[in-house]
Computed example of a mutant assay.
Amino acid sequence: MQTNLRERIPGLILLLAAMIFSIFPLLSMLSAALQPQGSLPLGISWPSDPQWHNFVDAWKVAEVTPLLVSSIILVIGVVPIAALCATMAGYALGQLQVWGGGLVLVLLIFGLALPKEATIVPLYYQLQGMGLLNTRIGLILVLIGTFMPFAVYWMRAHFVTMPKELAEASSIDGANRWQAFIRIQIPLAVPAIASMCLLLFLWTWNTFLQAIVLMNDPSKRTMAGALQNFVGQYTTDVVLLNAGSLLIMAPTILVFLVFQRHFVKALIAGAVKG
């Protein structure tokens, strides 16, 4: 028992350090958001008179309501389509051994290594030529294409670990590949799909560069685009900037807390199978 405890101590220390490292910035932002407007907060110090109305003022200054609606529309447009395409592509690459799958896998790896900054200018002119610039449809297509390399690679990593005997047993029972995919593979892939959808939601919600460059209308951008409303020509309201940042981060933190068990389950399953 003592040996097991000694083996766990380094992991517990590392976990505690990671928790402190993650919580400390949030506490710093919260303390800064509750300071009087116009002040310059330094460090973490709980104010004697917390200014909770700063969150309401930040909501109004940043005009968050239309950006919240726009972010929800983008999430609804991106996450289901990207999850469906990635799941089918991952199944084809991981289970069906389709012709040219190795080449597709190499292209996906190149897509993962390609920075967003390198593609933003070509995407701008491409959407302009297609008449989709400054439209949510254009931004949705860009985000789906941007996330697809990781999403497909994620789902392929799951399906490649599934036993081949499942497909063989389903074919003996008379099921075709589509029926085996829907009735057998999809239920087993729920943790991987849920965790992938969580990541897609977080990335879509926090999209900043593509939304700023490809959307001329500020009301059609994402919640992250609201941060620029706190930056003036000569000054920046640090207090409202921290309050607005917490408002933008709140939905992502809440969604992650609700669905974290699916994410952890997928990671554990992948580690055990690997």
Score class of each variant (00 low, 15 high):
72 I>R: 09
141 L>Q: 12
38 G>M: 03
139 L>K: 03
32 A>E: 06
34 L>K: 00
54 N>E: 04
37 Q>W: 03
127 L>H: 03
54 N>I: 07
54 N>G: 02
138 G>A: 10
63 E>H: 15
38 G>F: 02
55 F>Q: 05
94 G>P: 02
125 Y>A: 10
59 W>R: 02
41 P>D: 08
94 G>M: 07
86 A>D: 02
117 E>D: 04
51 Q>R: 14
79 V>K: 04
35 Q>E: 15
72 I>G: 14
41 P>I: 09
115 P>C: 09
90 G>N: 05
35 Q>T: 09
94 G>T: 04
136 R>K: 15
63 E>L: 12
120 I>E: 00
133 L>F: 07
78 V>W: 01
129 G>F: 05
115 P>T: 13
37 Q>M: 14
40 L>R: 11
94 G>E: 01
131 G>L: 12
138 G>Y: 08
34 L>G: 05
45 S>W: 10
133 L>R: 01
70 S>Y: 02
109 I>K: 08
66 P>F: 14
49 D>L: 15
123 L>W: 08
50 P>E: 03
64 V>K: 00
57 D>P: 04
32 A>D: 06
139 L>Y: 00
58 A>S: 10
123 L>K: 07
106 V>E: 01
95 Q>A: 05
38 G>A: 08
119 T>H: 09
71 S>E: 02
124 Y>H: 08
34 L>Y: 00
123 L>H: 00
43 G>K: 06
121 V>Q: 02
112 L>F: 10
99 W>F: 12
68 L>C: 04
80 P>R: 07
67 L>R: 14
41 P>R: 09
68 L>N: 07
98 V>I: 15
51 Q>T: 11
125 Y>H: 13
89 A>W: 02
76 I>N: 11
112 L>M: 13
105 L>R: 14
116 K>C: 05
111 G>L: 03
137 I>V: 14
35 Q>G: 10
113 A>F: 12
76 I>R: 13
86 A>S: 15
88 M>A: 08
126 Q>F: 14
58 A>Y: 04
142 V>R: 02
32 A>K: 00
106 V>R: 03
70 S>L: 01
109 I>Y: 14
81 I>H: 11
100 G>T: 06
128 Q>A: 10
67 L>H: 07
78 V>M: 03
74 L>M: 15
91 Y>V: 03
108 L>H: 05
138 G>L: 10
110 F>A: 14
67 L>S: 05
49 D>M: 11
93 L>M: 01
138 G>V: 08
125 Y>Q: 13
96 L>S: 08
64 V>Q: 10
119 T>S: 13
69 V>H: 13
93 L>V: 01
67 L>V: 09
81 I>V: 15
112 L>V: 11
59 W>P: 00
63 E>P: 09
